[in-house]
Nucleic acid binder design. Structure first.
Length: 305
DNA sequence: AACTGTGCCAACCGCGCACCT
DNA sequence: GAGGTGCGCGGTTGGCACAGT
């Protein structure tokens, strides 16, 4: 017995098997073979499935192709505003648990959400020169992007559903979608104006489990329509409103949904900031919408306060 | 027209967990 | 309990498309 020889033959056999395995982009025939096989026999045992279906692919590869591409319920196309908001929200809650996040976005795959996060969100963290996991970035997300997204969802629904539908109804329509996905009672209310002199608040609230939680929309008087760029969805906020004295504000309880936390600003400070913003806008080109990507120097944002 | 940079996304890789023997 | 196998997840890469120079 030539052990060395046997080993050599085994290696050779293994090499042949590795060589026979296909890698890279899937061909149409392979897709059909996989779909046909699964439609007849169902999923499961991916390695044996790959062999049985006559595919020269690993089980892993077949599984990935099916789950991320061929599955009939896979949704393709742009991530909607509601989905963006949900992704930001769920990521703030769970971190990089992509598959868990994907479970709450019907038809979206973990891969797609992960790609979205990496290409869009992390890009802005980079522009802000801060770490995507930093407190600074998370707060920017929570108090800037998410309110902005909520506002844009409202604006979009007000124009696309039916002009006759009140804003309130339209907003509830969208958040109901989110409610359905998250599966917990959320309630979004319109800006409430309390006509009381010094303690007036303009508050824009999204209520989840807590009855008093709310957050402001920085857009109440700076509404600006974005381009269709998916990136600009996150880049159009003009100023950052840090949490002002609000007993309901909960600083970072990781177990809570982020936008249950609230932010109420008094009109006086709000208008002051608006005036400052207008002055800046006149003097600085970087403040203009077409240069939205340049907004993401957080020090500049802070300097507006 | 050619080249370069950037964004995006499909696919791969490595690790860890669960289950089975 | 130990080892083997399959699967799922998160991170990373490769390549295509497009825009800008």
């Amino acid at each position: 017995m030539n052990v060395k020889g046997e080993k050599g033959e085994e290696d050779q056999e293994e090499m042949v098997m590795i060589e026979e395995l296909r890698r890279g982009p899937w061909k149409v025939e392979e897709d059909f073979a996989l779909m046909n096989y699964i439609s007849l026999h169902g999923e499961g045992r991916w390695n044996s499935l790959a062999c049985s279906a006559g595919l020269k692919r690993t089980g892993k590869s077949c599984r990935l192709r099916w789950l991320n591409y061929l599955r009939p319920d896979v949704r393709r196309g742009n991530i909607t505003l509601e989905e963006q908001l949900l992704i930001l929200e769920l990521h703030s809650r769970w971190g990089n648990r992509w598959s868990k996040i994907a479970q709450h976005l019907p038809g979206r795959t973990d891969n797609e959400i992960k790609n979205y996060w990496r290409t869009r969100v992390q890009k802005h963290a980079k522009q802000l020169k801060c770490d995507v996991n930093s407190k600074q970035f998370k707060e920017t997300m929570r108090y800037l992007w998410m309110p902005r997204l909520a506002e844009r969802i409202q604006a979009a629904s007000a124009t696309t559903i039916s002009p006759e539908i009140s804003e309130s109804t339209a907003l509830n329509y969208n958040t109901n979608n989110i409610n359905n996905i998250i599966g917990s009672p959320h309630q979004v209310t319109m800006p409430q104006e309390h006509a009381q002199a010094s303690s007036d608040t303009i508050c824009y609230s999204v209520q989840l489990d807590k009855p008093n939680s709310s957050f402001t929309s920085d857009s109440l008087n700076t509404t600006k329509t974005s381009s269709n760029s998916p990136i600009s969805d996150l880049t159009e906020c003009c100023y950052y409103h840090p949490p002002v004295t609000n007993p309901n504000y909960d600083h970072g309880n990781g177990s809570e949904l982020g936008f249950t936390e609230c932010l109420i600003i008094s009109p006086s400070s709000y208008y002051d900031q608006d005036l400052a913003f207008q002055a800046m806008e006149q003097n600085n080109q970087w403040m203009r919408g077409d240069l939205a990507d340049n907004l993401w120097n957080v020090e500049d944002i802070w300097s507006l306060q």
